[in-house]
Design a protein around this nucleic acid. Sequence first.
DNA 1: CGTATATTTGATCGAGCTCAACCAGCGTGG
DNA 2: CCACGCTGGTTGAGCTCGATCAAATATACG
Lengths: 238, 238
Amino acid sequence: MNYHHTNCDDCVVRNTAICSALSSDELAVLNSKGRMHRLSAGQTLVWEGDESLLVANVVEGVMKLSTSMGDGREQIVGIVYPSDFIGRPFGGRSLHSVTALTDAHLCAFSRRDFDGFAREHPDLEHKLLDRTLTELDRARHWMLLLGRKTAPEKIATFLLEMADRLSASTPAAGTTPGLFELPFGRQQIADILGMTIETVSRQLSRLKKEGIIALPDRRHIQIVDRDRLAEQAEIDGP
Amino acid sequence: MNYHHTNCDDCVVRNTAICSALSSDELAVLNSKGRMHRLSAGQTLVWEGDESLLVANVVEGVMKLSTSMGDGREQIVGIVYPSDFIGRPFGGRSLHSVTALTDAHLCAFSRRDFDGFAREHPDLEHKLLDRTLTELDRARHWMLLLGRKTAPEKIATFLLEMADRLSASTPAAGTTPGLFELPFGRQQIADILGMTIETVSRQLSRLKKEGIIALPDRRHIQIVDRDRLAEQAEIDGP
DNA sequence: CGTATATTTGATCGAGCTCAACCAGCGTGG
DNA sequence: CCACGCTGGTTGAGCTCGATCAAATATACG
């Protein structure tokens, strides 16, 4: 069996996802419409251009949002972490694919059900609005990186952002500071930063040689000299 | 005098801006908190990093949202047309500057007033949410262009998008089809597409030489062969 | 008209892409 | 156990697209 109902009381994102806008009673109603959904790494939940049929909260795992061109060029346009919301409520079709990068765990709803419920619960819509505004800020900020930063700047910015985003979720906090596990391979880093896999690899090798980072294995990065990395990111803003 | 109250009944964006969610009575209340604000071309309303103190509907004119780096590199992250909403409601600071590209006409509110009013009017928040979701889709879609498209593809995509966006607003529809007026100079096109002014100029010259577009003057573009232009844009999606 | 500003065009350079070989880890089966 | 192949990552060599530097031309404006 691939999905089933669950009790929100046990939910690890109960207080961080948009559900936090709801009382226990309201949550019970929403819960009756939702289903737990498990995805394995690499599985795609929604394809670019699909009609938007479902929305979900991410409970566990990391996902990517991506668009691609006819010839295979791909751009990752968003990374989604636990307690984030995915899907396009209120009509329309999805303009990007949604794919699991790790095994993932979603709390999913049919868009129809969710739309109806949301319209009756302004606090929920408010939370969603707040989140969407933040995502929009984030996306626009990333446009600066894609349009104007050089390869060294892109990599440095990326590593700093990942360190912040993943430090919380990484294993025991007791481990080496600055160490984290990337939920993606080199090609995906390239697709996030708008460059090629070779350039990503070369830039990482360079940072390693310069002693700014260490690369314990394919998937782990350790930031050794955060200050020098920040220099390379060329902090923005006038 | 730079701004004053106005009557929403005469407002040209009354039925297209988020105000369309409100009844006349509600609108009267909101109106009492708002002020008409005029900006001249080039004026900046909000600076990157500023605390978010005001929000507004654009009534007339075109504006840009932009972020920039210490050394002057700039990326335009959004273009705002009449009936669009600007500003960052619900706390936080603005991550991008907001600047008028043409003389503009805003219906502005203090963020505090707006936040309070919005929270009491779910329909207004809903409209805003819908708009924000659309903007987020648009921004993410643009990330594909910035990260993965070549210069010819960027220019072609840009011209097609501008033709669609501006055809409505351009003077009498009776004019030559495919002709429109750009509200920006070459440097701004470059800052939208993440390239240099020289490359923009060269690409436009090439399209002209190939007979795909005509350039009546600095600010006007006429699309002569839409099909061939669309070819060059390399339509995306798998 | 003359001066400041925007745009085009030309010539050259180099960051990052492409093509290609190489290498490390790792699961499979002889 | 070790050879094998497979996937994913690294490294090298050369080339290309778009950036940079520089100059010429067009347009606006007093």
